[in-house]
Design a protein around this nucleic acid. Structure first.
Length: 643
RNA sequence: GCCGGCGUAGCUCAGUGGUAGAGCAACUGAUUCGUAAUCAGUUGGCCGGGAGUUCGACUCUCCCCGCCGGCUCCA
C-alpha cells in the first residue's frame, strides 16, 4: 500500500506499483491534459514513474504546462523531437546538447554542412510526423559503462564526452519511437503533447561554449501546449521588434551609424542629441548635488601610462592600435580612470579630503570584435557617465550605499523600475591580494544588504582589479544589458602609487571606486528608446510641442503662439506647411511629439489654443498662458514610467 | 573573430542571365482644409565595393566591406 498526501487533503491509499501519473490523473481530473510531470517529495519526475517507499506518506503534486517548470519540460521534449527529426532526415549528424531555455529550446548538431532554410522546413515537417505519432518518452537507467558503449556504438562522440564527466551512479536515457538520447529528464508522457512549435532560428555555436572547439549548428525553436499561445508569443516578438531602438532610431531620426565613418561609431542626430542633452543636464545637476566634482580629460594619452595602469597587459585585445606622435606611442583612451588618478595626484591629499569624487562624461574607445556590435547597445566609441571615488579603506561600505541610492534615483527618474543586480566574485585572472578581495567583496555585499536590495552572485565575473556590482536592464527583446556598475579597485592606486596623509600624517593608500550609473550614454539611450517605445516623457522629448495652423489665414496668430511657447524655453516647432490638419496631426503623432497645439479660426477669434495630447488626445481649449504653465509643471515631474 | 542569412531610390520592399520597378518620402503646382494620409505632376539608382565567368551580370563564382540572428567576448 502506498500512502499519498496531497497538498490540500488528507492521505489517500494506492496499490503498490501505481505510477505518479495514474495517481495525479485520478486526483486532478480537470487538469488531466495539462499535467506534464509529477513532483514527488519535491523531486520532479516522469508521470510514468512508479511510486514506491511504503514506509512514509509521499507528497505528490502535479506539474502543469502552465508553470515555468512545466513549459520547460514541454520544450525540452520538443528539443528531443527535433533531434529525432534531424537524425531521421540526415545521416552523419552527431548530437550535442539540447536544453530548454527562456522562451524555447535549442539543440546543437555536428553536421557536415550547415542547415539551409529548406533543411529547416524538412525538419519541421518531420517533427510534425513524430508528434502525430504520439509515441511515449521512455526512461531507462543504465550503468555508466553500458551507456558509454551504447552511445559509442552510435558514434555519438559528444554524448560520450558528457557521460565520461558524469558521476558513477549510472545515467538515464530516454527513448521515443526508436530515438535514444542521454538525458536527465523528466519528459512529457508522449510526443503528441507538443501541440504547437516552431523553429525560430539557426546559428553556429561552439561545443561547450569554447571558442577553441568545434563549431556546431544550433537550431533554436519554441513550443507551446496550444497554437494560440504560440501565435501570441510570435505576436509579442513582433511587437518587440517594433520598439527596437535601431528601427526607432531611424524612424525618429535620433541617430545613425555610417559605413563611411566606421562600425560601432554613433552619429547623434539633432533630436537624439537633444534627448542626450536633457539626460546630461539632469546627470550634472544630480552629481553636483551628490558631492561630485566634474572634470574633463583628454581623449588620448601616452602608451606608457596604459602600460603602468595595466591596461596594456590585461586589456590589449580591446585597445585601438597605438599611433606614433613624435616618436612616442599614444592610444585613444579605453577608460577615464588613469586621468582621474593624475588629477588626484596633482597635489597632496589629506584624509580630511576623502572621499574625493571625480565625475566625467568621458568618451572612450574600445576595439570590439566585429560580430558583437549591436546598435547603440554595443559600440566602439561611447561616453561613460564615469566617476572615480577615492576612499579610506573604512569608507567603502557607506560610500557604496550612497552610490547605490544615487544609481536607483537616476534609473527611476527614467522609469526603469525593474532591473537585476549582480555581485561578482574574483575571476581567474586577477591582481591584488586575496585578503583585499575578500574585504572589498564583503563591503559591497554589506552595502547591498544594507540597502535591502535583492541580488545574485555572479561567480568569477569580477573585473581583474576588483569585485563589482552590476545592474542590468533588459532591452525590448528581453536581452539584459549592463548599464550601472560599481567596482572596487585596489590595483590602480597601487600601480600609480596614489597616496593620502592619514590622521597620523602617514602616507596611506586609498581605495578607488569606479562607478557608472547609466553605464554609457549610448547604451542607456538605446535602452531608453526601447523602454519608452520612442514616446519620451515631456522632459526628454526632442520636440515637446508642435504648433499646427489649420489654414493659411491662421499663420500669423499661430506664429505668435509658437513664439510665446518657445520664449519659455520649451522645445517647440511650428508646422506651417500647406498641408491638411489631418496630415500634420498624423505626422506629429508618428514623431511621438507629446503635445500639439491646433490653431484655426475658432482659436484665433477667441485668442485661445486647442491642445492635443499624445496620450489622451484632444484637450479642452485654454489660453496660451494656461497651456504653457501646465507644460512647465509637467516638465518638472521627472521619473514617470513609460506612457 | 566564428557559423548562417542579408545588402536594389532617403525609407519599406518587388525584380532567377537580355534596356532597373512600386508605395511612401522629397520637389513643383493646384487646393485653404477642424483632430492619424487632398489631388495632379516631376525628380531620384555605379542594384554595397572589387575581380572573374559570359556576346551580355542586379541576377552566376571568388575576395572585401557593412548589416541582421546566434556563438565567443564584454572594465
Amino acid at each position: 500500500m502506498i500512502i499519498v498526501k496531497f497538498s490540500d487533503e488528507e492521505d489517500s491509499n494506492y496499490p503498490e506499483g501505481i505510477t505518479a501519473g495514474e495517481v495525479l490523473f485520478g486526483r486532478y481530473k480537470g487538469l488531466s491534459n495539462k499535467i506534464v510531470a509529477a513532483k514527488v517529495n519535491g523531486n520532479t519526475v516522469d508521470l510514468s514513474t512508479p511510486l514506491k517507499d511504503p514506509d512514509t506518506a509521499l507528497r505528490v503534486e502535479p506539474v502543469t504546462v502552465d508553470s515555468e517548470e512545466g513549459i520547460g519540460i514541454l520544450r525540452h521534449s520538443a528539443a528531443h523531437i527535433m533531434a529525432q527529426a534531424v537524425k531521421g532526415v540526415y545521416k552523419d549528424v552527431k548530437l550535442g546538447i539540447g536544453p530548454a531555455i527562456e522562451d524555447g529550446f535549442y539543440y546543437d548538431f555536428d553536421t557536415p554542412a550547415p542547415f539551409t532554410p529548406e533543411d529547416i522546413e524538412k525538419i519541421e515537417k518531420r517533427m510534425e510526423e513524430i508528434i502525430k505519432g504520439d509515441s511515449p518518452f521512455e526512461r531507462e537507467e543504465l550503468k555508466k559503462d553500458d551507456a558509454l558503449n551504447l552511445f559509442k556504438g552510435m558514434g555519438e562522440t559528444y554524448k560520450e564526452e558528457l557521460i565520461r564527466e558524469l558521476g558513477d551512479d549510472g545515467v538515464s536515457i530516454y527513448r521515443q519511437s526508436g530515438f535514444v538520447d542521454l538525458c536527465r529528464g523528466p519528459h512529457l508522457p508522449k510526443t503528441g503533447m507538443v501541440k504547437a512549435f516552431k523553429i525560430t532560428s539557426t546559428a553556429g555555436a561552439y561545443w561547450r561554449g569554447d571558442e577553441k572547439r568545434k563549431m556546431l549548428q544550433r537550431v533554436y525553436g519554441t513550443a507551446f501546449p496550444d497554437k494560440k499561445q504560440l501565435a501570441q508569443y510570435l505576436r509579442k516578438i513582433d511587437e518587440a521588434k517594433k520598439r527596437d531602438h535601431r528601427k526607432l532610431g531611424r524612424e525618429l531620426d535620433l541617430f545613425s551609424v555610417s559605413e563611411e565613418v566606421g562600425p560601432g561609431l554613433i552619429l547623434w542626430h539633432p533630436d537624439g542629441a537633444t534627448v542626450r542633452l536633457a539626460i546630461e543636464d539632469f546627470w550634472r545637476k544630480g552629481h553636483i548635488k551628490n558631492g561630485y566634482s566634474l572634470v574633463y580629460t583628454p581623449h588620448v594619452a601616452k602608451l606608457d601610462m596604459w602600460k603602468r595602469s595595466g591596461h596594456w597587459d590585461f586589456y590589449r585585445e580591446n585597445l585601438f592600435s597605438p599611433m606614433d606622435v613624435e616618436g612616442q606611442d599614444y592610444i585613444v583612451k579605453p577608460m577615464n580612470c588613469p586621468f582621474h588618478i593624475q588629477i588626484f595626484k596633482s597635489r597632496l591629499r589629506s584624509y580630511r579630503d576623502l572621499p574625493i569624487r571625480y565625475a566625467e562624461l568621458g568618451t572612450v574607445y574600445r576595439f570590439e570584435r566585429s560580430g558583437v556590435l549591436h546598435g547603440l547597445l554595443r559600440v566602439r566609441g561611447f561616453t561613460q557617465d564615469d566617476a572615480h571615488i577615492y576612499l579610506a579603506p573604512g569608507q567603502i561600505e557607506d560610500e557604496v550605499k550612497s552610490v547605490l541610492k544615487f544609481t536607483l534615483y537616476i534609473l527611476r527618474a527614467f522609469g526603469f523600475n525593474e532591473y537585476e543586480i549582480f555581485l561578482s566574485t574574483r575571476p581567474e585572472k586577477y591582481v591584488g591580494s586575496i585578503e583585499n578581495w575578500a574585504m572589498a567583496w564583503g563591503s559591497l555585499k554589506a552595502a547591498l544588504e544594507g540597502e535591502g536590495l535583492p541580488y545574485s552572485v555572479d561567480p568569477g565575473e569580477g573585473v581583474f582589479y576588483g569585485p563589482k556590482i552590476d545592474i542590468k536592464i533588459k532591452d525590448a527583446l528581453g536581452r539584459a544589458w549592463q548599464c550601472s556598475t560599481i567596482q572596487a579597485d585596489f590595483n590602480l592606486p597601487e600601480r600609480f602609487d596614489v597616496t593620502y596623509r592619514d590622521e597620523r600624517g602617514v602616507e596611506s593608500r586609498p581605495i578607488m571606486l569606479h562607478r557608472a550609473l547609466m553605464g554609457s550614454l549610448e547604451r542607456f539611450f538605446g535602452c531608453l528608446v526601447e523602454h519608452y517605445a520612442g514616446a519620451f516623457p515631456l522632459w526628454l522629448s526632442p520636440v515637446q510641442v508642435v504648433v499646427l495652423n489649420v489654414t493659411e489665414r491662421n499663420v500669423l496668430y499661430a506664429g505668435r503662439v509658437f513664439e510665446a511657447i518657445k520664449e519659455k524655453g520649451l522645445r517647440a516647432e511650428f508646422d506651417s506647411r500647406n498641408e491638411t490638419l489631418n496630415y500634420k496631426i498624423r505626422e506629429a503623432r508618428l514623431r511621438k511629439v507629446p503635445y500639439m497645439v491646433i490653431i484655426g479660426d475658432r482659436e484665433e477669434e477667441k485668442g485661445v489654443v486647442s491642445p492635443r495630447s499624445r496620450d489622451t488626445g484632444e484637450m479642452a481649449q485654454s489660453t496660451v498662458q494656461e497651456f504653457i504653465e501646465s507644460l512647465e509643471r509637467e516638465n518638472k515631474t521627472i521619473g514617470g514610467g513609460p506612457s
